[in-house]
Amino acid sequence: MIEDSLYNRYKAYLSLELHLTHNSVDAYLKDLDKLSSYLTSENKSYREVTYDDLQHLIAQLYDLGISARSIARIISGIKSFFRFLLLEEYIENDPTELLESPRIGIHLPTVLTIEEVDRLIGAIDMTAPAGQRNRAMLEILYSCGLRVSELTGLKFSNLFLNESFLRVDGKGRKQRLVPMSEAAVSELRSYLADPERPDPIRGQEEFVFLSNRGKAISRIMVFVLIKQLAEAAGINKSISPHTFRHSFATHLLEGGANLQAIQLMLGHESIATTEIYTHIDRETLRHEIETYHPRNQSYRPTPEETDTLV
């Protein structure tokens, strides 16, 4: 069992000392709730928890059919809590020290081709009042590799259009500068000058992208918009706003961009997070081998095709 006072101290630690976002804090607290429920069922205090107890908890999670990825996240949250207890001297030994997370295979995210990106943006109804706003949003998602929360939270103070840069308030309240493409700058300027852009309501004046009610556009609205556009464009892939971020990174890598530069633009803390895009690039190379290597199929290119491959 975990008392409310300790729960609140841990919450303050996550927010004020680790500078985690509201969503991240909520995720860690949900992981703590699972530990608290287990301790209550076992009639144990957090001070009495052993390595074997935690192994038993993890076994229960597997029995419930929870995925390895979700279990790994829960273990990470539990480890964070016990590190906090050790730091604040609530406990003398950390029972999670030897606790291992399940192995998780690499999951290659869905990526749009350049042609699919163009089709999707081209499906926007420019006669609709929000047409220019939608075009600017999607162009920035793709050209700058933003997370959807970074897009919806974009403020005028983050814009440096003359220099073609955005300042992004990312995870953990960390800021980064991201260059904008000429297309993104052009579409954004057109949106800001659009007479159809609604007047912001009080308290929403800072936000760039507004709903038709004058409030900062929500993440859900962006999700729904992209689903509708994908259907209109005849794209059958399961996509979301994050697909544009994956496509941004993949297309940069395939074009020869440096991995460290992509890491900085995405705002990844570790280069290991960015390295997933090297696997996507290898998949592209595998496709090329399977398409053109004579051992893989009976296809033989025509003389005209041979000329293009040399």
Score class of each variant (00 low, 15 high):
Glu89Lys: 15
Ala59Thr: 12
Pro179Thr: 07
Arg295Gln: 11
Leu20Asp: 03
Ala232His: 05
Gly131Ile: 02
Gly131Tyr: 03
Lys237Arg: 12
Leu266Val: 00
Val222Trp: 08
Ile140Trp: 04
Thr306Cys: 15
Arg147Pro: 07
Leu14Trp: 00
Glu17Ile: 08
Ala27Asn: 11
Ala257His: 09
Thr21Val: 01
Ile124Ser: 03
Asp125Trp: 05
Ala257Cys: 10
His287Trp: 15
Ser76Phe: 09
Asp33Phe: 07
Arg219Lys: 12
Ala72Cys: 01
Ile78Leu: 12
Ser67Asp: 15
Arg147Ala: 06
Thr273Trp: 03
Met137Trp: 06
Ile217Ala: 08
Glu275Pro: 07
Pro129Tyr: 09
His251Trp: 08
Asn296Glu: 14
Leu253Tyr: 06
Leu120Gly: 00
Gln263Trp: 07
Tyr38Leu: 09
Gly122Thr: 04
Phe244Glu: 09
Ile289Tyr: 11
Arg73Trp: 01
Glu290Asp: 14
Gly145Arg: 02
Ile235Val: 09
Arg9Gln: 13
Leu264Asp: 10
Leu87Pro: 00
Thr306Leu: 15
Ser186Trp: 06
Asn212Glu: 13
Asp281Lys: 13
Glu3Arg: 00
Phe156Leu: 09
Ile276Glu: 03
Arg103His: 14
Ser41Tyr: 09
Val178Ser: 01
Pro303Tyr: 02
Ser164Cys: 10
Ala123Leu: 03
Met137Pro: 01
Arg119His: 10
Arg103Ala: 12
Leu16Ala: 13
Ala123Met: 05
Glu187Thr: 13
Val117Ile: 12
Leu85His: 05
Ala123Lys: 07
Ala130Asn: 13
Leu87Ser: 15
Glu17Met: 07
Ile201Asp: 10
Gly255Ser: 14
Ile276Val: 14
Phe84Trp: 04
Tyr28Val: 07
Gln55Arg: 12
Gly256Met: 15
Ser41Leu: 11
Gly234Met: 05
Tyr277Trp: 05
Thr152Asp: 07
Asn212Gln: 11
Tyr51Met: 04
His242Thr: 02
Leu154Asp: 01
Tyr142Thr: 08
Ile91Leu: 00
Val178Ile: 10
Leu120Val: 08
Leu141Gly: 06
Phe223Gly: 03
Pro200Gly: 01
Leu29Glu: 08
Arg73Pro: 03
Leu86Trp: 03
Ser76Gly: 15
Leu151Met: 13
Gly234Ile: 06
